[in-house]
Amino acid sequence: MNRLDAETRRSLLRDMIFVRRFEERCAQLYQQTKIRGFLHLYVGEEAIACGVGHLLSDDDAAVGTYREHGHALMKGVPPGAVMAEMFGRVDGCSGGRGGSMHLFDAGRRFYGGNAIVGGGLPLAVGLALGDKLAGRERVTVCFFGEGAVAEGEFHESMNLAALWQLPVLFACENNLYAMGTALTRSEASTDIALRAITYGMPSWPTDGMDVEEVVAATRRALSYVRTGAGPAFVEYRTYRFRAHSMYDPERYRDKAEVAEWRHRDPITILLERMVADGEIDDADAARAAIEAEVDAEIDTAVEFADASPVEDVADLERHLYAEAPR
C-alpha cells in the first residue's frame, strides 16, 4: 500500500478541497455571468492535479488543457490571478486575454491552457527538448484527456519524446468520456497505458481517485524521467462528476453511473482513510473546517478579481508581437 505520512495527507486533502471549492465557485460565478465563454470544471478529478503537483518543483514545467484550473493552482499560480483571468481583467494570469481555457504563468512554468485537443503534447515535447539541449535537469508534465489519444498529434509526440529520450511525463487523465463520446466508442483498443508501452516508454495505469495512488505512480514515473532515460506515461483512471462544460445535457451517460463514481470521490476516500488511521476524529468536522478556510481564500481571490480593472480598448492590438519594454 502506498500510504503517505499524516502531514502530507493533510496537505493533499486541503489542496483537493481547495480545487473543489474553487471550481464550485466558478460554476456560481458563471451563472452570475462574471465568467463567460467556455468553462470546464475539474470536479471529481482533483486527486490528479494535486497529487502530481505535489511532486513537481518550481523548475518543472506543466502543460494543461482547457480543464486546467486545478493544474494552474497546483503549479502555484495565485488563485486571485486565476480568478481575475476568468473575469477577463488585467490582473489575470494571462492579462485577461485568455480566460478559463488559457491560463498561463511563464514565471511559474505553467504553459497553458490549450483548447485544441492534443495541442499541448508537441509543446511539452519541445519544452523538454529545450531543457535537454540546455543541459537543465527538469521535467515537463503534460496533462491531457483520453480523448486526445485519438489525435495524430498524440502519437507523433509520444514517438518523438521516446525517440529523443526527452524528460516528459505524459499524464493522461482518463475520465472515460470525451464530451459525449465514451472511450469504448472511440478507441478500438481501450487499454491506453498498454498502448503507450509500444512507443518505448514505461507506462502504467493508476487509480486517479485515490490521491495516494496518484502520488505513488507519479513518483515512480518521475524518478524514471529524472534519470534522463526518456519519457514515461501514467494513465490516471478518473471521472468527471459534472457536465463536460456548462452547456451539456449529459444525454450520453447514466445518472446511475455518475452516482456510482461519486462514491469514489477522491476527497472522501482520503478523509475516510485518515479517520480509519486515527489522523482525524470526525470527517465532517474536519472537512467543514478546511472548507471554511479555503472559502475565505477563494473569497479573497474573487474580491481581487472583481477589483481588477478591464483593459483599455486602446491596447486592443497589443501582444501580437514582442514589444519594447514600456
Binding site: R36, G37, G88, R89, G96, R97, G98, G99, H102, V310, E311, V313, L316, E317, H319, L320
Partner: peptide, 12 residues
C-alpha cells in the same frame, strides 16, 4: 476583424 487572435474579454 482587427489583426489579432480574438481576446476573451467581451469589450475587447
Amino acid at each position: 476583424t482587427a489583426e489579432i487572435p480574438l481576446p476573451y474579454p467581451d469589450h475587447l
